[in-house]
Design a protein around this nucleic acid. Structure first.
Lengths: 363, 363
DNA sequence: TTGAAAGCGCTAACAC
DNA sequence: GTGTTAGCGCTTTCAA
C-alpha cells in the first residue's frame, strides 16, 4: 500500500535506477531529473524500505543490545542503553533491545543464543550487557557472531578470552577511593559489599590493593546479609556498630552505601562527623541530594563506546579492537573528613545512641 | 557467507520450496525429506533471514518502542519497556528502542517523525511512551502510521483524540488514596507535587475529587519549588512546617514523597506517628525497605498490554481497540494511622525539634 | 547521465 | 507431496 520506488519512478517519469541514485546521493545525476524525483518522493510520501535495502547490501543498519541474566533493567544499564541509543541514532542505526537468560554451567554448545541471533541478518553485531559468562562468549565466537562486551560484569573462570570490550576502570576507581581515605589519615576503612556479585569483585580488589600497599589490614564485610543492596549495607553497619568494631570510614557501592548511611543515622552516627564515606558509582536520586564524595563513571559514554565499537566491527568484520577503558573519577565533595593521625591502636566506635526506628526494619 | 536456503536445499537434495515448507512447519511434507532438510540445516548452521522473509510477507516481526521527550530512561519506563520486551519475546517479535524529542508547539505537519518511521517497513507499529503531545498523534494519524499510546503522560489541548491506548488508572488511584486517609479521620491532607508535570495532573485531579466529595478543603502544594522531585517534596514540607500550617497526612508521588519524608524526619516528625503518608507509585528501592502505604501499579503489565495491542493492531490494520486500563491498588502497610475524630479546627503541627543536618541541603 | 535487468533470501502460487 | 518460478523493494552492474 505505501508507495515504493517503482511508483516514484513512474510519477517522475524516470527509471527506478535513477530514483535509487537520487536517494543514495549519487552525484552524477541531472539536476532536472533529481528535482522531478524529489518532487515525486514528497508527493507520494515515499519512504524507502530499509530491510529490502539491507537485503541487497548484505548489512542491516541495526545493532542489538542484549541484557543478560538480569531480571530487570537496572538504572546502570538504562544509562548504558541510553548511550547506545544516542550513538546509534547519530550513526543512523537502529537498536534492538532484548534480554537473555542462561546458566553459567551450561556447556557453550548447548546454549540457547539470543533470539536475535537465531535468525540471521537481523542485527549484525550484538552488544552484550548485563552479567555474562564465558560460555556465551565462547558460543558466539564459535558461531562467528560479531559482538562487543561490557566487561565489568563479565565472569570468566579460565583466563579471560580476549574479546572486543569496553569497561570502566573499577579496580582503579576503588583503589583511588580507598587511597584517598588513607591519605586523609583513616586506617579503619571498611569495605562493604556482597563479594559474590560479579560487579562487586573488582571494587573489592581495588580496595584490597590499596590497603595492602599501605600495610593496612582490610576490614571487609563481604558476606551477603541480604540480597537487597540497601538492606545489606544497613545490616553490615548494624553489625559493625553492635560489635563495637573500629570504623572511621566506609567505602561501598552506591546501593550498599545508601543502606549503610541509613544505619549510621539510626545509630546516631554522623557522616562525615563520625564516619567518612566514599561511594562507588551513583544511586538514583541520592547524589543529587547529598554532596557525596563518590567515584563517578560516565555510563552514557560507556554505552556510546560500546555502540561505536559495535558499528566499527560491523564495518570491518573480523577486526579486533583494543579494550576501551572509560575512566572513573573520584569526586571529592562533602562526606569525608581527615582523621587525626594521632590515633590509639584501637579506635572505639561511638556506641549506638538511639534504637533503630521500628518502621524501617521490614522488607 | 552464512548459509542460505539454496545451500540447504542443495545439501539436502531438495528444492528451496521444500526447505521453506519445512521451516514454516508446513504439515504436508514427507517425513524423510523433512529429516534430510533438518539435518542439512543443522550441519550448515542455517539461520533464516528475517528481513528477506518480511519483504515477502509484507510485515516485519518487529515493533518499535519510542520514548518521547525524556532525557533519560526513568525507572517507570524501564519497567514498561521490560513488559514490552517480555510480551514481544514470547510472541517472537523484536523490539526496537528509540527516543524522540519534539516541541509541543510544532505544527503536526512540520514534526520530525521518529527515525524508525522515516524509513518504512522497519516496524509496522509503534508504541509511544514517555511524554507525548497531540501534535505527534495527529501527525501519525495523518500519515497512517499505526501506533498505540501510553496515555498517562499524554497531553492534549483539544478534546482527546480517540487513539488506541493503555493507561493506568491514576485518577482513581489518587482518589482511593485520599479517601483512605479521609476514612482514617484525616482532614488536613496535603497533596504535594508540581502540577505542571503531565504525569502529576491526574493524581492531583483524583485528590481534588476525593476532597471535594467529602467537603474538605484541598491543601495543595503544587508549585515547583525544585525541578528535582525529591527536593521539591522536601522544600514543600519545610514550608508547611515552617509556616505552621495544619497537616496530619501527605499524599504525593513517590519521588516527591521520598523528599517529603526526609524533611519530616529532619523536622523531628515521625511517620506515621505525627504525619500519615500515602505514596503514589514506587520509588526505586524505597518501598522494599520501608513498609509504605502506597498506590501500586503493575508497570510491567502495562508494557505487556501495550505490546499486545501493538501486535494485534499490526495483524488487523485499521482496527480500533478499546482503552486498556491497568488498575492501581491501594496497598495498606505501615505509614498511616487513624486520626482522632475529635479535632480542633486548627490542628497545630508539631514544631521543628531539630535543625536540618548541615549535609543534606546542597544540590 | 540514464535505463534495463539481474539478483539479494525468501514465500507462495502453480504445475506436476 | 514436491519442484519451479515469479516477485517482494531495492542496488548495482552493464550497455547505451
Amino acid at each position: 500500500m505505501p508507495a515504493n520506488m517503482k511508483d516514484v519512478a513512474k510519477k517522475a517519469g524516470v527509471s527506478v535506477g535513477t530514483v535509487s541514485r537520487v536517494i543514495n546521493q549519487n552525484p552524477t545525476i541531472d539536476p532536472v531529473l533529481r528535482q522531478r524525483v524529489e518532487k515525486a518522493i514528497a508527493e507520494l510520501n515515499y519512504r524507502p524500505n530499509t530491510w529490502a535495502r539491507s537485503l541487497v547490501n548484505d548489512v542491516a543498519p541495526c545493532i542489538s543490545f542484549v541484557l543478560s541474566n538480569r531480571s530487570f533493567l537496572h538504572p546502570v544499564h538504562s544509562r548504558i542503553l541510553q548511550g547506545v541509543e544516542e550513538y546509534c541514532d547519530a550513526a543512523e542505526y537502529f537498536v534492538l533491545y532484548s534480554r537473555l537468560r542462561y546458566r553459567r554451567e551450561t556447556a557453550s554448545a548447548e546454549l540457547d543464543l539470543p533470539r536475535v541471533l537465531r535468525s540471521h541478518g537481523i542485527a549484525d553485531c550484538v552488544i552484550l550487557a548485563g552479567t555474562n559468562f564465558d560460555n556465551l562468549v565462547e558460543a558466539l565466537e564459535k558461531q562467528q557472531v560479531p559482538f562487543v562486551l561490557l566487561a565489568n560484569n563479565f565472569v570468566t573462570h579460565g583466563g579471560r578470552v580476549p574479546v572486543d570490550q569496553v569497561r570502566w576502570n573499577d579496580v582503579a576507581g576503588a583503589r583511588a577511593a580507598t587511597e584517598y581515605l588513607i591519605e586523609l589519615g583513616h586506617r579503619e576503612i571498611w569495605y562493604i559489599g556482597d563479594a559474590s556479585l560479579p560487579w562487586l569483585r573488582a571494587p573489592l580488589e581495588g580496595y584490597q590493593k590499596a590497603m595492602e600497599a599501605h600495610g593496612l589490614d582490610p576490614r571487609e564485610q563481604i558476606a551477603a546479609l541480604s540480597d537487597n543492596g540497601f538492606l545489606n549495607g544497613r545490616a553490615s553497619v548494624d553489625m559493625i556498630v553492635e560489635r563495637n568494631l573500629p570504623m572511621t570510614a566506609i567505602f561501598a557501592d552506591a546501593e550498599v552505601a545508601y543502606g549503610a548511611w541509613e544505619a549510621l543515622r539510626l545509630h546516631g552516627l554522623k557522616v562525615p562527623g563520625d564516619v567518612s564515606m566514599v561511594v562507588l558509582g551513583e544511586q538514583e536520586g541520592w547524589s543529587d541530594v547529598v554532596p557525596l564524595t563518590y567515584v563517578s563513571v560516565d555510563l552514557v559514554e560507556t554505552g556510546r563506546q560500546l555502540a561505536k565499537m559495535a558499528i566499527e566491527k560491523m564495518k570491518s568484520p573480523g577486526a579486533r579492537f583494543p579494550e576501551v577503558v572509560v575512566p572513573m573519577d573520584l569526586i571529592r565533595r562533602g562526606t569525608c573528613r581527615p582523621q587525626p593521625i594521632t590515633k590509639t591502636e584501637l579506635v572505639e566506635a561511638p556506641v549506638t545512641s538511639r534504637a533503630p526506628e521500628p518502621l524501617s526494619g521490614t522488607k
